[in-house]
Design a protein around this nucleic acid. Structure first.
Lengths: 264, 264
DNA sequence: ACCTGTGAAGATTTTCACAGCA
DNA sequence: TGCTGTGAAAATCTTCACAGGT
């Protein structure tokens, strides 16, 4: 995924760096935090690593190792105190205060992202919207007016935007990115299918939904091939749970899990 | 790596015996395919691994290794013939024919996904829409009528849906998932922030946009901490490229790259 | 009895570096 | 010469298994 590259070009002076958390762990920490929120809503006070692992779909040992990177906040024999752990995760993830988000490109996808409540609710209020289309500039979405992209620098500076989301067509993405960077935005979530060129101090993450579907298609094809090969090689192969509603509640992505009773 | 492993069953593949492609490679293959499309549009006939690596932001050796998993289609001293390679990638990724997609949940995000041209254009036509909301059932989006979720089984079977996308609120996701599975859908792209329970033969991928933002926020916080620590420890630390428009075109996510000239 | 935290083993992925072919 | 394909080394990530605290 997003590779930070240990060998930086210029500014990689990481002496006595505070034990950096493995890249792979960071994404999972965010997931744990979300689930802790759900558990807290259900009134739970503590969770064990096994329980939290079950609801997040992660191996319990891996979860404990992930958490060990942020400190030791568990209680042996008991588990983790949910609110304390959530608090620590928020601290480590830099969620102490909301981060203002600017969204550029209010087309199909962008329009939805602008109205998506999942952001503001989790500490990422979308405070600024931009587009080039004169028909879109000036309209309001969720109470926010769409500005022209040329005002990105002023507006972002003024509103203290720290994160930019690019949901423009591919050709426009790089120049938008340049504008955001010049507005001191240091984190960019890119939905356009291009590789953005940025200075080393800017972090980019790319989301490509078509790629996600292609990965699924690959597994689909794989499975079909396997089934054909199997049918050919071992005619006695017996398809379990062939038709109709299937029984679940125990197989999580192929891995067995305790029923856990709770509903998410 | 390419070891025959436990002597396989199917040995009938002509050129390449794709003994299971590493999971990490698959996602990148999809990216290569996309970029090959762009290059073809620009009139290129061949690419070298270095060129394709530069535009996709991948290490050239990694790219070659990825491609080696699907067979050997390069020409030494020249590179890869674009259309031939693209064809092979499509074959491996199972993109020979379009895969009908059903989208459940036509709220904010779902509505955008329904109208997103990036899917149909890449072989994943959204052919069916579902929701529970009576106000939404019956409306048309992009020429497709929204059906009630209760008709998922019939409609999906009828239209040969192979991939489901879930863009409902969290609480509804599991029951929708069950419906899709009972409709023989074997691949699910899940936008709801829950872990779906599925039988082993179903493949689920999860996309959580809030998590993406949190990962960015983490890097933001990290960077701020680093800057503070640095300023404190080495007062001589010199911030390069501090303000104003920055010069790009050479740093790709922190890694140096040839100019490549082309515009994406 | 139970559960965390972690060293060490194991698996996977990335990168290097170069043999070999066009 | 220029570039692919690939062993082998290095880095990273996952899992096991158990010491040690409650």
């Amino acid at each position: 995924m997003t590779e930070p590259g240990p060998e930086g070009t210029a500014g990689t002076r990481q002496r006595s760096a505070p034990r950096s958390i493995p890249e792979a762990s960071v994404a999972r920490l965010a997931v744990y935090l979300r689930m802790l929120g759900e558990l807290a809503e259900q009134g739970a006070e503590t969770v064990s690593s096994d329980e939290l692992a079950a609801v997040t779909g992660v191996n319990p040992a891996k979860l404990r190792k992930d958490l060990s990177h942020i400190g030791t906040y568990g209680i042996r024999g008991v588990g983790y105190e949910i609110s304390a752990l959530a608090h620590q995760l928020e601290r480590v993830l830099g969620l102490g205060h909301p981060q203002a988000v600017a969204l550029v490109g209010v087309g199909n996808l962008g329009h939805a992202l602008a109205g998506y409540s999942g952001f503001g609710g989790r500490g990422f209020p979308v405070t600024s919207l931009f587009d080039v289309d004169p028909d879109l500039v000036g309209i309001h979405i969720n109470g926010i007016v769409v500005d022209h992209v040329r005002s990105i620098p002023e507006v972002c500076a003024e509103r203290g935007v720290t994160i930019g989301m690019i949901a423009t067509p591919g050709q426009a993405a790089q120049s938008i990115c340049d504008l955001l960077v010049s507005a001191r935005v240091r984190c960019i979530l890119n939905f356009a299918p291009v590789l953005l060129q940025v200075p080393a101090e800017v972090e980019v993450r790319k989301v490509d939904l078509a790629v996600e579907l292609q990965v699924l298609a690959f597994h689909l094809a794989r499975r079909n091939l396997a089934v054909e090969a199997e049918a050919e090689a071992e005619p006695e192969a017996e398809p379990e749970a062939e038709a109709g509603p299937v029984a679940y509640g125990y197989a999580v992505n192929g891995r067995t899990v305790n029923g856990s009773g709770g509903r998410l």
